[in-house]
Design a binder for these strands. Sequence first.
RNA 1: UGGGGCGUCGCCAAGCGGUAAGGCACUGGAUUUUGAUUCCAGCAUUCGCAGGUUCGAUCCCUGCCGCCCCAGCCA
Length: 553
Amino acid sequence: MSKSEPLVSSNFIRTIISEDLDSGKRDRVVTRFPPEPNGYLHIGHAKSFGLNFSLAEDFNGCCHLRFDDTNPIKEDDEYVEAIKADVRWLGFDWGEHLHFASDYFDQLYLWAVQLIKAGKAYVDSQSADQMRENRGTLTQAGVDSPYRERSVAENLELFEQMKNGDFPDGSHILRAKIDMSSPNMNLRDPAMYRIMHTNHHRTGDKWCIYPMYDFAHGQGDSIEGVTYSICTLEFEDHRPLYDWFIKELDIFAPQQVEFARLNLSYTVMSKRKLLQLVKDNHVSGWDDPRMPTLVGMRRRGYPPEAIRTFCERIGVGKGASWIELSVLEECVREQLNKTAFRRQAVLNPLKVTITNYPTDKVEQLDAPNHPQQPELGTRKLPFSSELYIDRDDFMEEPPKKFFRLGPGREVRLRNAYIIKCEEVIKDGNGEVVELKCSADLDTLGKNPVGRKVKGIIHWVSAGQAKKVEVRLYDRLFNQENPDKATNYLDALNPESITMTTALVEPELLHAAPGTTIQFERVGYFTVDSKDSQLQHPVFNRTVTLRDAWAKLK
RNA sequence: UGGGGCGUCGCCAAGCGGUAAGGCACUGGAUUUUGAUUCCAGCAUUCGCAGGUUCGAUCCCUGCCGCCCCAGCCA
């Protein structure tokens, strides 16, 4: 594999694979993404499956999608379908390789019997509490279970009875016989099978015993011929157990490789916490645009290409890392800047009357859909004597660096004329309610001679503008790491959503759900796919534009 | 404190014994009918600390220090 110009930076996993391929230790690359179907995928999962799928792509191998459905009480088909949709949305394809750990339940059972016969597994009849007590602590060896030396025949019979449903949940458990004094807790006779009289989303009531992760994962990898089983750091301690089962069973040996999971500033990634945000109505659902879930980001308007770029850009390592939100946002802007049509929208209107423009005239100006891509065409922009501009673009007593509108100042109306503020009208409370301006009607599509006008502001024509609902989203949490708060819920940003109405160009009323538009000088906005109705679009702010002025202030 | 990992710029991250890539952020400056975009420039004499090996060490060795993970019949 020689890449003339590496698009992505190298990482330790690529190095391992390249070396294995060169030395002949491996002759192909098979990876897998193994989610448990118990919730929605988030951006952290995207890092994981992005890694697995692109590794397979780059090394001409393949990547399987396998559902690790070994714990029926938490799993559901709803999640299976949602996960498949999310992986596809990001543009990855598992081809024929859609698998389920539950496909292997028969084989796993046979292997468990094999280990019992070899004296490597036994049925323990201690309670969960007793087992915990006898496991010892981090610095103290555990003690053997009183049932550890049961005969093979007795273990075989008990295990069979477990399978047949003769025992209630929790009464017995199958454990691997390894070493109760191992410094690695995972090797202190780990559980292999537990009794659960629960209906499984795929196998129904065929089974009432289910394998644990440790007795299913590596074997699933082995059955599928996975060469690299890439997982997160917390499984490092499980690797000796992973290898132990493979060795004792004498089956094809995949290699487990661990990398650091993603942490994104100003958000949380744990499924438990995301679930709580949903359940306690801190957000509107898994697909709330503030959620770090893929469904949430999709609804927010983040393009899949941006998320893929993000996953490549952040790299892969073994150190617990925190990625700044700005990295993600920049990926989103980068993608949207290339594709989003430009439109004008006023979020906080201030009336402007053009005193020297006929009151009954409506002019249809031509404005480009994209200033850098003329091939994307133009649209008609209505102009009249009554306009709205954004309040932020006017200051009665502007500071030196402010080059927008102020009394006696000139400014360019984007895509239209240069105007000059002649009069400021206030209401009884002293609040500015209207600006009377004159327009230089000789400045359409050209600059005036003899003077330079630096400021450019956006606007809409009052008579033609349409009112739409706009939701301004901001980070969900106030703290970079919400877990540093006593309770992460205390770090919730009370201003993570602001509802408002905006005045927009008329034709935006018909924008299709899911399309993203740049409101010039404001940000990117996506038509909400859930709450928008015909003639009543709801716009989600996907991300703001970079704002040098905001920094100057 | 037993075991397993990790420490390279504010945040990520290459580098694998020959004298510190890149991205984000930040700072200048140019172009611009988005204070956007684009462009150009700047941004670690130094790789947690202290020793050692070597002609030469971020890369090897030793010892400290700091951080993360593990005691589910969850994954």
